[in-house]
Design a binder for these strands. Structure first.
Lengths: 208, 208, 208, 208
DNA sequence: CAATAATCGAGACGGTACGTCGCGTCTTGGG
DNA sequence: CCCAAGACGCGACGTACCGTCTCGATTATTG
């Protein structure tokens, strides 16, 4: 069984005295592989990532990939997992400002093909690559949702929002609108989109 | 050049007097193919539809499929096109009631994997199957959008809504929320979801 | 176990009434594969034949090759076996004329890279591809030797040759000289080479 | 640029006073490498020599090999060159005796797989390893040929042989027969083979 | 009835990607 | 400098599908 890419783990658990014999694995190759994987992912989604193309683009032999990850799914897990899309903790200024910052980040992500592909991956084919999906959910989707939920809950506490709001509904309203508008919205997001969206949503949440 | 699946057309224009010689195509087989295609589409999306599997599930030879449609994309166009997801014209009662009716329909669609997969298809793999995409856009997405936009515009005319609202933003807010909530919303939509969503959105659009 | 390319066998044993279901194997593809294999063999010997290159040169998928032969060795066996290098039966005129005809054929073969490669294959690497080697020995080398031995033995019977000659030694003398002279003989065989060689060898075999 | 294996030269020219710093190269390792190379060459020819196997058989790290020779071809050149197959100068007794001595040496070589492989190498894979080939030609093939040609030419001068003989043809007749008989001659050379061959060849060369 | 032709299962076709293996080469750490 | 161990790029291997195409045999309609 594969227990993850163990190089750093080994180095961490056993300090410099006890490392593997032989030539160490090239960090440059590892980086090039991840980079190539992400580029191909950005171009063609999950299905656009084929190990042979990754190897060619990274200037690396296929064996160098399979030495590190047992298969395509693990490579994808590692590469996409390394993207760190987690939303930053909000500043805590006001609910409105925090949400605007978050939505602006979502909007700017939707413009970057790397992150855009994550949306579409998340929306589509969950059958193949179930481990990739659950990793993505656990380490990207849920953290992001937690941040947004946190802001909304804090708004309730501070009285900025009505106490009886449906937190999840509001959250989906923000993220879903960005998704729906972004994909096939044909033209780029206009300036001020984030404010407009947040204000419209908040107007339904403000205390009466 | 392929000029569409002409069976029904031929049968319509020239009834029993001038039909083709030889054994007629079995409507049962055609139906079974479409049905199998839709089932596989529901299970695995566009990529889950492979002709071999369709043939097996429909209990039909692969040739029987290629006799009718020149390829996978056309089969999908036909199958998905046959799903008729167009929203019905709103009754025109009130903006709120109309929108609730629409959202309820969206919600019930989002519960059926057949329709849910349409969302995900629409969100993902766009470059492959461009004809499928443009057919879907023309005959499903745009009609639906037109209906929703119509309701919102009528609301502005009747004064139910503020005159300066962003029609498209509001539309995306409705559809996007349903999509985001539906996809990986884990549990079914709660009763009253449509009212709740529409009210929340409308509260941002109501005249002050 | 693989029992040879069974297409023709099946057709032979069971006449036209009982053939395999499904699309029959393309004879054109088979021919192109063999042709490509022989071309690559002529260019690079056994090691120059790689299945991927054969497929590319023949304009054929790799599966089409593996459907017919279980691996590279069998492909080589079939391709090289199809070359039919067996020497023709001698006319029986005189031993001298028969041997000259044979040596002229050996010499002309040594000029054709396809046959030249057979010499070098026969000389080299017998470890890998032992089945190829034994097939080559059985169906090419030994038949050829048999022909030459036959001519020499007949010469003994007719009194053209001494009765106490060493048939095999004389045979190796003919074939070995062609091989040694041909390979790295640097320049082409001169006209009259066959006569010269045969006369020189025969002068040691003539009755005193 | 690689300037040859300079170890022994260096050690010879500069004795203990000016040797290289650090641990000196183990002559035992060098010997073991050459020995292993020759063994593998005897077993599997040029293609049977792979650096990994040489290192394993010699009980040596691969680096130890690459420190001494820049690659496989140079290793082979060194190993095979160390075999010293050059024929000894003939005694000059009589042409027949000299040739018999030479052929006996060829025969005994052909029984040793190390030397037999040289024949097959010479006959086969020429384009790869061109440097190995030209070294072999220059330092093994041509010297040997020169010796045989010398004996034959002397025979012409002394009147032992006809003046119009084709020296090269006769030479190839001797060497080629040994090669052809040796390779896959199945059983060992019989006693008296050399005399028999030389007599048969000479009977075509003797003055009438 | 006989001709016609569309039906069916089955499987071959070219292609692309997979994951593995072995090669010749290079690069560590420790002795 | 030596040695072991093992990573590196490369390229071929044999497999598994995919979407497409093509066969022989069957079956139902039409003339």
């Amino acid at each position: 069984m594969w227990k993850g890419n163990t190089v750093s783990a080994d180095l961490a658990q056993a300090d410099a005295t006890a490392r593997r014999p032989g030539r160490p694995r090239s960090e440059a190759a590892e980086h090039a592989i991840i980079e190539a994987t992400l580029e191909l992912f950005a171009e063609g989604g999950v299905e656009g990532v084929c190990v042979e193309a990754v190897a060619a683009k990274a200037g690396v032999g296929k064996a160098t990939i399979y030495r590190r990850w047992p298969g395509k799914e693990e490579l994808l897990i590692h590469a996409i997992g390394s993207l760190k899309t987690a939303l930053p903790e909000p500043k805590g200024a006001s609910v409105r400002d925090d949400l605007i910052a978050i939505v602006e980040l979502l909007v700017s992500d939707a413009a970057d093909p790397r992150y855009m592909r994550q949306f579409t991956m998340w929306m589509s084919e969950g059958q193949k690559y179930p481990r990739l999906m659950s990793m993505f959910k656990e380490s990207v989707v849920e953290p992001n949702r937690r941040v947004i939920r946190g802001v909304l809950r804090r708004g309730v506490e501070t009285g900025e929002l009505r106490p009886d709001i449906d937190v999840d509904l509001s959250m989906f309203c923000l993220t879903g609108t960005v998704m729906a508008r972004g994909k096939h919205g044909e033209d780029a997001f206009p300036a001020g989109f984030a404010e407009q969206l947040v204000d419209q949503v908040l107007s339904g949440l403000a205390p009466r």
